[in-house]
């Protein structure tokens, strides 16, 4: 879209608080920050400022990546980890979104569930790994359970807060227009809070990646986390770096997908 007005408004100029940046400048700055981190990395490793056993050069990392993909079926690790993350995330979402809506909208449901969830969410999901291994074993469901343990209570509480952001005025006016009390959640509160809920989902998906990697470091035989912990044992630091980069890139891709979805669905915002 071309801007009819090229001049910048004083209160939203780039350097003012809450100011705006043109899309191009934004991209340039974002690329610059990536490049800067990369440059520092390339410099300190290539100049030998750090021990190559602990931090590989970018070239060595690329070499590791090639080996991982071609000889050590790294693609399969990525697939497995992504599958676990998405399963854990989806199961969490399918439960947390509707229950979170009810918790946010109905005071008795809130009283029943909110304090309990607030308690549970402070229990570190990773601390459940030993217990889950005992209960479930070390197969897929255990990994997914860890992700659900970490994501579901958080997401539920976030959705509840999102629901409570809907102005009460909107609910009231909908009643005067004939909305039934039993339908106001569906017709007013849900559509009004949907953009916030989508944003909460985006945040939670990011956390799910943390949990999967930890879960894969204990009692696993596949996945990015498994590859990384194996590489640590064999002192192949390049592989660890490839693992980190892979997780970062996957996260970025999913984040972009969510932002795209937001643009497509919520033109009204």
């Amino acid at each position: 879209m071309k801007h009819p007005n090229k001049r910048v408004d004083a209160t939203t100029s780039a350097l003012a608080p809450q100011g705006k940046l043109s899309r191009n400048v934004y991209v340039v700055l974002a690329v610059v920050s990536f490049a800067a981190v990369f440059a520092v990395w390339a410099l300190i490793t290539n100049l030998g400022l750090v021990n190559a056993d602990f931090m590989p050069t970018p070239q060595a990392t690329v070499q590791s990546a090639i080996e991982l993909f071609t000889e050590q079926h790294f693609l399969e690790d990525i697939r497995v980890s992504t599958y676990r993350v998405l399963m854990g995330f989806l199961i969490s979402a399918v439960i947390a979104v509707p229950v979170g809506l009810l918790v946010g909208a109905y005071a008795p449901v809130n009283a029943l569930i909110e304090p309990l969830m607030s308690f549970i969410r402070y229990l570190p999901a990773t601390a459940f790994i030993p217990l889950f291994i005992l209960w479930i074993g070390i197969d897929e469901s255990e990994k997914i359970a860890v992700i659900i343990m970490g994501s579901l209570p958080q997401l539920l509480l976030m959705v509840a807060v999102d629901t409570q952001k809907v102005p009460h005025d909107l609910v009231e006016v909908s009643y005067t227009l004939g909305t039934k009390r039993s339908l106001v959640l569906w017709k007013v509160i849900l559509p009004a809070s949907l953009p916030y809920i989508l944003d909460s989902l985006r945040m939670i998906l990011g956390w799910a990646w943390t949990y999967v990697v930890v879960a894969e470091m204990v009692g696993a035989s596949s996945g990015i986390g498994y590859m990384m912990i194996q590489s640590e044992r064999m002192m192949v630091v390049g592989n660890i770096f490839v693992g980190l980069l892979a997780i970062g890139l996957l996260g970025l891709v999913f984040d972009c997908l969510f932002k795209l979805l937001d643009k497509l669905l919520f033109r009204w915002k």
Partner: peptide, 17 residues
């Protein structure tokens, strides 16, 4: 409240979506 009594609020209450 009921649909027999329509209301226009002092604040803006259009459904934004």
């Amino acid at each position: 409240p009921g649909k027999d009594r329509g209301m226009v609020f002092q604040s803006y209450t259009l459904f934004p979506w």
